[in-house]
Simulated scan of single mutants.
Amino acid sequence: MAAFNLTLSEPSPFILIGIPGLEAAHLWISIPFFTFYIIGLFGNFMLLFAVGKEQTLHKPMYLLLCMLALTDIGMSTSLVPMALCIFWFNLKGITVSGCLTQMFFIHTVSVMQSAVLVTMAFDRYVAICNPLRYATILTNARIAKLGLVGLIRAVLFILPLPLLLSRQPFCANRIIPHTYCEHMAVAKMSCGDITVNRTYGLVIAFVVNGSDLALIALSYVLIITAILRISSKKAHQKALNTCTSHICVMLMSYTPSLFSYLTQRFGQGIASHVHVTFANFYLLVPPMLNPIIYGVKSKELRDKVSKYTCRR
């Protein structure tokens, strides 16, 4: 009876196998994982440090960059330590509660990052279309409130995912062909009906990502319309340059995440290692490149970061 109670209270763990089909190369794959992670941490922490220390950077645009940096750190940290345990030490087991917790954090941070990108698009719209009212429309306090709203939205949308899965019966085969606990990868381990899980996942994709992309697209339509009204070519170039970094970050964030989402549900003909690689790509590479892109495009930020790095 005691053994029976123990079995009920401590369900068997899930097994994350890493990148299926490439197990023999896990040690080599860990090198870019670790390298990208360290570069991303250094770049994002330096951005946070520079903005925190410099009063001249306490502006809405740089506060948004800090929010983006925090989501980047959270996103990569939710993935890389567990992945390196798989690659380096063959530690593939993860408890059900640990798996659901990792899934919650990864998807919550992803939705939060999408909200930050929408706010950044709105920031660029106001800066170009209403430059004289920029300081009154986008105050630091308002940016902080928008960030809090984005966080609350992310938690409310994602929290039902682990709650729904926690009520599912899982099969004896608990091997997940992935490096982390992605929602549908875990849901497919269930022996029960996962129609509600599939439907809710689609709702999140269309309501959250769909609405965010629509708002970003609307912002850029209005921005382009405003730019076309400007007669000076030099002013055209200057206005477009202010948007280039945001467009690059947006493409890096949304393209692989949408590919990963679509292949997980509809891409049965795509090799699993291709899907898993892309699923890792959008959690690992953008956090490394985002601070580099903004550092290159923003001279003011680049100068402040260089001041501290060169001093050290």
Rank of each mutant, 00 (worst) to 15 (best):
P287Q: 08
N197G: 10
L283K: 11
S260L: 06
G21N: 08
S231M: 08
M189K: 09
L22H: 05
Y37N: 05
G74P: 04
T244P: 01
L22T: 06
W28F: 10
G269S: 12
V51K: 04
G52A: 02
H58V: 00
Q168H: 09
E23N: 01
P60E: 13
V149Y: 12
M67I: 06
C66N: 11
V155G: 03
I73K: 02
L138Y: 02
L215N: 02
F4Q: 09
I106G: 01
M184S: 10
H178W: 10
L79P: 02
S260F: 08
I227D: 02
P162M: 07
V196Y: 03
K238I: 12
T199R: 13
M67T: 07
A69C: 05
G21V: 11
V196W: 04
V208G: 05
F266G: 08
A144K: 14
A187F: 01
T71R: 02
L132D: 15
V221F: 12
K297L: 05
R174F: 00
P160L: 03
M82H: 15
I19F: 01
L228T: 12
L215H: 03
K234G: 09
A154H: 07
N197D: 15
T309S: 10
M288G: 00
T263D: 10
P256H: 02
A144Q: 14
T77A: 07
T56N: 12
T108D: 05
C243F: 08
G192P: 13
T255S: 09
I194Y: 01
M61H: 11
L164D: 12
T242Q: 11
K59A: 07
I270Q: 03
P11E: 01
F34Q: 08
P286I: 01
S232N: 09
S97L: 12
A226K: 10
A217S: 11
K297R: 09
P81E: 07
M288H: 01
Y125A: 05
M184K: 05
E300H: 01
Y220K: 02
S298C: 07
H178C: 07
A239Q: 09
K234H: 10
F206E: 08
L16Q: 06
Y37D: 05
A205R: 13
W28L: 15
F278T: 11
F49P: 04
F4W: 14
